[in-house]
Simulated assay, not measured.
Amino acid sequence: MDHPPTNPDERARRLYDLTAARAGRAVLAGYSTSFGLGSRLLGARARADIEAVYALVRIADEIVDTYRGSDAGALLDELEAQTARALESGYSTNLVVHAFAATARRTGIGHDELDPFFASMRADLTVRVHDRASFEAYVHGSAEVVGLMCLAVFLNADRLPGEPVRRGDERLRAGAQALGAAFQKTNFLRDLGDDSGALGRSYFPGIAPGSLTQSQLDAILAEIAADLETARGALPGLPRRARVAVDATLGLYERLLHQIAASPPAEVLARRARVGTPRKLAVVAGAVARQSRGPA
């Protein structure tokens, strides 16, 4: 159990850390309902760490997707540099970066994850149409490594000071990468119309902006289903609360895919699929019921 700090400097540092953590929580609450709903099933430490990871990823994404100014590349470079400095020092004047660095230093997240992530974000500034090689590299950096960051959080939430960082076995890491890939590809599919119209991007190889055939849609859905199967296969290796949260989030994305699969391609391009709140709550309740019967 944590004890309140008595040293004035320690109290000030703790206040800054808590304020930074609240900034991450605010970013997640403002941008994601599905991811946010799943994170509420985690313990306090893991939830704060997931919020910190999400917030950094979201800010980078906003630079390349929403701001898109002529200096977007410079802003992304500065965010990456801030993050690298904070990994070394444990401190940043950017509250979101400060919270992320605290999480990364405690859970073992480092440049193996961050370098490909920022490379993928930078690709959004220049690449408009992807081939298979660039698509796979983009998904790895923008999503698979984020899955690995989340796995690091789940495995190290209860790690005591001085204990070695837990990395996870090959099956867990493959499941984490597949989870990130499935979520990213689903979001690409949901945003197919907006990405091609507003941003002029085409992520899926072989699909021209603004077009989608039934056979192309079926192939994408099959690819995502294979990722989800790999991710589900790794669930038993996660700590219980992480298992519940991931199961719930998987269920929400599977529901989205079900809606997309039931829609003709023209509708997929025209309307962003959403899951209503009652359905979301039912999916989460089902995950809690399933995983409560599993091992601790």
Rank of each mutant, 00 (worst) to 15 (best):
R255Q: 14
A245P: 09
V268M: 05
R240Q: 13
V246S: 01
H258M: 03
V283W: 10
E223Y: 08
E254P: 02
G294M: 13
A287F: 05
A261E: 08
Q259P: 00
A270R: 15
H258K: 04
R243Q: 10
A262G: 02
R232F: 05
A287C: 10
P265E: 03
A296N: 13
A270P: 06
V288N: 05
A273Q: 12
G286T: 10
D227M: 08
E229A: 15
I260P: 01
E229K: 13
P239E: 09
L238I: 07
E254I: 06
T230M: 09
G237R: 04
L228F: 14
R279P: 01
A234R: 12
T230F: 01
P239V: 04
V244N: 02
A287Q: 05
A231N: 13
R241L: 14
P236R: 13
S263Q: 11
A282D: 09
Y253V: 05
A270Q: 09
P239S: 11
L256N: 06
R279Q: 14
A231C: 13
V283N: 07
L256M: 07
E267F: 04
A226F: 06
A242Q: 06
L235G: 01
A234E: 10
R272E: 05
A289G: 08
Q291Y: 05
A248R: 09
A234F: 06
E223K: 12
R274K: 14
I224W: 06
A287L: 09
E254D: 11
Q259I: 00
R290A: 13
G237C: 07
A225L: 03
R293D: 02
